[in-house]
Design a protein around this nucleic acid. Structure first.
Length: 418
DNA sequence: ATTCCACAGGAAGGGCGGGGTT
DNA sequence: AACCCCGCCCTTCCTGTGGAAT
């Protein structure tokens, strides 16, 4: 017994000892990492550089609107170009400040203005509290602080659509016109968005001044993703740990999902992590498929976890029907079970009309399949199927306090209904 | 050709919470 | 603090409909 235990431990340690280390520098595969070169973005880099170059001649550059889907390199390219500009302008003795704000976090006018003022706090000795001041006070302060000396200020508003949807375009109006009120400094705005439609929300005046110039980032195709991954892989992994097929497979899988480079990098990283954990000496195609599976599962789990209460109850009634072998079910059946569950949990049930919409939502999220079918004489309804395993759903609910009562309920409910 | 099931899904409006305004 | 406005969630009421059954 003891002997057995000993060899078992030995084998564990040996496995890890023998296993070649996989990652040389995992940071390179993170989204936040800015590589030294950006493959297949030469055109966008040049356009941006061309737009910003007036700075070096002491002229105000145009405002820019940058758009493209997620994972097309917008943010990283803008950061890259603005960094380069900062370096070069230093040589020319022209002060350039680049203020990068992600509007998903900095999501109100006030916060945007306050963040800009606070960016200069070391220089001005001023700091605006995160709440409390009237917005126009902050705006005045902002002008003072910026205009304290001659310089260029480039304000990058990432995910600008989030800001506009939440708090309107007033702030853009102010920022794009601020130059008329400044004597020393010059400001230009770079707006980044992955939602092109949001332009419709903008006041035409704002739109015309923000999109004086536009830079479009098309999705990457599989070959381009492969180049990107190759470049990063050289930095991230030790030599020869990647099987030849790994990078092309990651690229192909990510290309299938609208050419998202983030997705591709995640795949590559997770593949490596899985190989590492298995104690494998090489990352192979097999690990990539596992990574693909894991990422899908993780996002699905996250989606289910954050569902509102009634959607969770609704999902659970479909799970019960599935366990009972009653899928596909129609809307009426599902609604009946749902009502029972609400009753059991002492929750007021929603109407069938509303549940019908929630079913559609679950369908769009890919958790269930709901197809409208006509059963002739027997009416028109949805055929509802489950797209995840009941086990998975239960496992997620196990950690949700408010759903505890549901877990032991299955058999009782089923008996009462059928 | 007609009927009729079992819903789908549009329209309108109530209630409510969060943000901005006065 | 009082107020208002907007977006969101939900209900009520409603008309529409594909196709098996008759």
């Amino acid at each position: 017994m003891e002997r057995k235990e000993q060899t078992y431990l030995d084998s564990i340690f040996e496995k890890y000892l023998k296993a070649r280390r996989i990652f040389k520098n995992k940071e390179v595969l993170r989204h936040s990492y800015t590589p030294k070169e950006l493959p297949h973005r030469r055109e966008q880099i040049e356009t941006l550089a061309h737009i910003l170059v007036p700075v070096l001649r002491g002229e105000t550059p145009s405002n820019v609107f940058v758009y493209g889907k997620t994972g097309t390199g917008k943010t990283v390219t803008v950061k890259f170009v603005t960094e380069e500009l900062k370096k070069i302008s230093q040589r020319y003795g022209i002060p350039v400040d680049v203020i990068y704000l992600n509007c998903e976090i900095v999501d109100t006018q006030y916060r945007v203005l306050a963040n800009i003022v606070n960016y200069f706090k070391h220089e001005s000795g001023f700091e605006v509290p995160l709440v409390g001041w009237p917005t126009d006070e902050v705006y005045k302060k902002l002008k003072d602080v910026i205009d304290a000396r001659e310089r260029f200020v480039i304000i990058v508003l990432d995910e600008i659509d989030k800001l506009i949807k939440k708090s309107g375009d007033d702030i853009l109006y102010s920022l794009t016109r601020i130059n008329t009120e400044l004597n020393n400094a010059k400001v230009s705005v770079i707006g980044i968005s992955n939602d092109l439609k949001f332009k419709e929300y903008l006041d035409p005046r704002v739109l015309s001044s923000l999109s004086e110039e536009e830079v479009v980032f098309p999705p990457y195709d599989a070959n381009q993703l492969r180049d990107i991954l190759m470049q990063r892989a050289r930095e991230a992994f030790y030599p020869d740990v990647l099987d030849d097929a790994v990078v092309p497979l990651c690229a192909a899988l990510a290309a299938r999902e609208h050419g998202d480079a983030r997705r591709a990098l995640d795949l590559l990283r997770v593949s490596g992590e899985i190989a590492e954990r298995e104690g494998a000496s090489k990352v192979t195609e097999k690990h990539v498929w596992k990574a693909q599976e894991k990422i899908e599962q993780d996002t699905m789990e996250e989606v289910i976890k954050t569902l509102p209460l009634h959607s969770k109850i609704l999902l659970y009634s479909i799970v019960l029907l599935d366990e009972n072998g009653d899928l596909p079910a129609n809307t009426g059946d599902v609604y009946a079970v749902y009502k029972e569950l609400c009753d059991y949990m002492d929750v007021e049930p929603l109407t069938q009309r509303r549940i019908s919409d929630l079913i559609n939502e679950l369908d769009m999220l890919g958790i269930i399949n709901a197809k409208v079918v006509s059963k002739g004489r027997y009416g028109r309804t949805k055929e509802i199927r489950l797209n995840v395993t009941p086990y998975k759903v239960k496992n997620i609910y196990r950690f949700d306090y408010s759903l505890q009562p549901l877990l032991p309920v299955n058999i009782a409910i089923q008996r009462r209904l059928f």
